[in-house]
């Protein structure tokens, strides 16, 4: 039995939604006086528990609003769960919306250092890997041009190249396999496949059952924030297909 790398225990996430968004002082005071400050509770996740062992590749299925992204954000540390606990052993690399941390005024080269620092890498490490990142991104001379002049494909390529420079223990993929043009897409898929072969643990969110079947060996279904199925990818994806096709 391989060791456990991720453990999600009874995780619940509550959002307090105001009926009307109040985000300035003036509105807040007026609503407070008129007693119109009503909050609506909304549970994006309810009592979700599962654990992953080293090398498992988990597909997360669910309709829009089922809580998939919320779950990934909690695992990535961006959100903090209202209740419950997440234990992680090893380095997590989230490949969520690549290049979101770029500064547009900065050149590609400067952004490599900035984004690397955001991901928690040290300066020496980035320096060492700099050439490798530039080469993989295929940006060439564009690396010294401010990112605001990049196309979205170029941005995604650079983001992908920086984020995948380390070999993480846990990789979070949120439908990012569609990066850049066809050629780069192939290249990035190859890189991710190579990581798979080395036996890293993967969390994968996708609306495409096909992709999940191809990439994962285990799957869960989330429905309105609850975990309703957990098993091998074959069983669970069949069940999911059946649920979708139900009238």
């Amino acid at each position: 039995m391989k060791k456990e790398v991720l453990k999600v225990e009874n995780v619940s996430m509550r959002f307090n939604l105001m009926e009307k968004k109040v985000d300035d002082l003036k509105d807040y005071v007026i609503k407070l006086i008129k007693r119109e400050l009503r909050y609506q509770e909304f549970w994006a996740l309810r009592d979700v528990s599962f654990s992953l062992r080293e090398g498992e590749r988990l597909g997360i299925l669910g309709l829009n609003g089922a809580g998939k992204s919320t779950l990934l954000k909690i695992i990535a540390g961006v959100l903090k769960a209202t209740e419950g606990k997440v234990t992680i052993k090893g380095k997590v690399v989230p490949l969520l919306e690549l290049g979101a941390g770029f500064d547009l005024q900065y050149t590609g080269a400067e952004n490599i250092y900035l984004y690397g620092a955001v991901l928690g890498y040290s300066k020496e490490f980035i320096k060492e890997k700099f050439d490798e990142i530039v080469e993989f991104s295929e940006l060439g001379d564009f690396i010294d041009v401010p990112v605001k002049n990049y196309s979205s494909g170029m941005k995604a390529r650079l983001g992908f190249s920086i984020a995948t420079i380390v070999e993480p223990e846990i990789l979070i993929l949120d439908e990012v396999l569609s990066v850049g043009d066809a050629k780069f897409r192939k290249k990035s898929e190859k890189k991710i496949k190579a990581m798979f072969d080395k036996g890293i643990t993967v969390l994968f969110v996708s609306h495409s059952i096909e992709q999940v079947r191809r990439l994962c060996d285990r799957a869960i279904i989330l429905d309105k924030g609850r975990l309703i199925a957990d098993g091998t990818v074959k069983e669970v994806s069949n069940l999911y297909e059946k649920r979708i096709n139900e009238p």
Binding site: A76, V78, P94, L96, E97, A100, G101, V118, L119, G120
Partner: peptide, 9 residues
């Protein structure tokens, strides 16, 4: 906010 929403720092 763009960064805070996507990556943990």
């Amino acid at each position: 906010s763009g960064m805070i929403k996507k990556v943990y720092v």
